[in-house]
Design a protein around this nucleic acid. Structure first.
Lengths: 342, 342
DNA sequence: ATTTAATTGAGGTACGCACCTCAGAAATCA
DNA sequence: TGATTTCTGAGGTGCGTACCTCAATTAAAT
């Protein structure tokens, strides 16, 4: 009944401790037949390695780097904070976390910054960066150097990363559409879609999902062409203002990315914000206030704290070449309203 | 910068390892002055005890018991499954989990079953049971016996438990109301509320939150008196059928608890299910299918996997008298629709 | 049959901590 | 002052695992 240990395995398999150890840690020098014997004993006794004792013995300390875009953004602030928190609470588990800021909208700058990482001194990276060929190559290099690589919030092609930590953008867009359509029951009108850029893979996917559900389920609503402000917040006011004034039946606004502060400011000027249904992404100081003020009706979010912790767990699992516990690492698409605000 | 150990503390305080150990484990035989010196060294170096190494040395293994209502329920099934999962994945961390089933709607039976627990052989309990004086006393007894006590899904008074793991029922009800009202924009009609019983504290709170938001924000909708089927599913059909046929303007149905299978069956008979907005609680096989079929419009849920893992962490923290990481243990109110189904 | 290579066993040290013993030092009391 | 009593230090052992070395055994190749 007590938890079996390596000793029990050794006895059961009729081999020495050293051999059990070799099998467990996949060290060479064990005949196949012997490996099978040990494996059988492990199964029979239901042995599970005590990970903490193992780490204690291994004296292994993990160093992970989170790569984040620099520049002011309420969302990045939330992410930074979550990393900070995870960092202190994970200290007890021998992982240290560093943050590396990379320039926005400057793929070459990102690459330069990534090259400053010394793959010998770190064990894994979690990267939040839009996909470009340059970034792809740089990340591939990190992975080839033996690092565990996780993508955060926005994915990169499968071969260059080990795991994606974030929500499915396509489903997120579909969810936004469902809420938009439901909240605008019986309304004939137009829906404005605003984004910083339609370059990033996740933006395209969101838009895709959004359009699909809108067209299929809510034919009374017309989705206007996407307003791209190209990450230049100063353009938001003019762009939104123009469209809003030209669209008399504007009933809904779907904000696909950042820039919600400027967007809400622009919408306020129309004096019709209160009648509009506004749906945005990510729970930040801005969207939270928007919800409380009744200006924003719903926010499609991901639990950033959970996400960061998940990234750390995933990177650790990769380093230890251990399986992850999929159910725990699945990031859900949160719908946040005024009433279920965390 | 490496993590300080007991050795570092001993050196810093100018005492021996044995003394540091006596202070850390509050063993007698150390002068007050010396205790202060050691404490100061601990603070100065920022020492945090490695609980895993400590538990290893102490040969400590945790045994936790989850107390669940017996009897068939798709929700309990989900909980059981989550416990199963957590159990296997936590085995590596020296915690074993047992499940104790207690009768439903029989407070004395619950108490009898709780008395079979030997407080000396277990370290903590996570309890899912409706509040009654008998249950309260039995749980208090467990807590007084030195066990860590967490309440699951439904709370008990603060003094008899250490921690509540679950969502705020009041906010959950409010959230349901918000969705109901929003999904029924422009509709004048009635909303049916169905529950197993209004006895349980969480049912009352949900109803309360639901009513509050409905009255304040959606005056066009009339909330009908709660239909209680007193945990006897066979009554659902007749109750719901009667009300549905009498209520010509029935537009929405809010299911506050279990019994969704019977409820949906009853609603199907009215042939008006497709036009109704149905909101239910908890993501189970039944509600999931309801969402996919378009019969259920939204489900207010809690992430049961997360919740169970959280309960285990909380109980462990209590046993080690260590602080919990509040942000991680906060259970969010999930809104699940067809498009963001996990 | 001999050499060579591949396996395996025995044993050690270490990780950070708990808990034990026993002797010696220091403080307290008489 | 001596006789207690109270502290403290030094040292050990063990928890479950990793990882190392060296010798011994076994299998494969010549």
């Amino acid at each position: 009944m007590p938890k079996p240990t390596v000793h029990d395995i050794a006895q059961e398999a009729g081999v020495s401790l050293a051999t059990v150890d070799r099998v467990l840690n996949e060290r060479p020098g064990v005949r196949d037949r012997t490996i099978q014997r040990v494996r059988a004993a492990i199964d029979k006794l239901g042995y599970v390695r005590d990970t903490y004792a193992a780490n204690l013995a291994r004296q292994k300390a993990y160093t992970f780097v989170f790569v984040l875009p620099e520049g002011p953004s309420s969302f990045i602030d939330v992410v930074r904070e979550a990393i900070e928190e995870a960092s202190t609470s994970q200290m007890a588990e021998r992982v240290t976390i560093r943050v590396l800021s990379v320039p926005q909208n400057d793929p070459h700058g990102v690459v330069r910054r990534l090259l400053t990482l010394n793959p010998g001194k770190i064990d894994g990276v979690a990267i939040m960066a839009p996909e470009t060929p340059q970034v792809r190559d740089a990340v591939r290099r990190l992975k080839n150097a033996g690092l565990a690589v996780a993508t955060l919030f926005s994915d990169l092609p499968v071969p260059v990363r080990d795991h994606y930590v974030g929500i499915n953008s396509y489903s997120a867009g579909r969810t936004a559409a469902l809420l938009m359509g439901r909240f605008l029951r019986g309304v004939h009108g137009s829906v404005m879609v605003v984004t910083g850029s339609l370059q990033a893979r996740d933006s395209i996917e969101r838009r895709h999902g959004f359009d699909e559900v809108m067209q299929r389920d809510f034919p009374d609503l017309t989705v206007l062409p996407t307003l791209e402000f190209h990450d230049d917040i100063s353009r938001v006011d003019r762009l939104v203002g123009t469209v809003a004034s030209q669209t008399r039946d504007l009933a809904g606004v779907y904000s696909m990315g950042a820039g919600n502060q400027a967007l809400l400011a622009a919408l306020r000027k129309t004096d019709r914000l209160n009648e509009m249904t506004v749906i945005a992404h990510e729970l930040t100081a801005v969207t939270r206030e928007g919800l409380l003020a009744g200006e924003v009706d719903a926010v499609i979010a991901q639990n950033v704290g959970h996400l960061v912790r998940s990234a750390v767990r995933v990177l650790r699992a990769k380093c230890d070449s251990v399986d992850i516990f999929a159910a725990q690492e699945k990031i859900r698409i949160d719908i946040v309203t005024r009433e279920n605000l965390p």
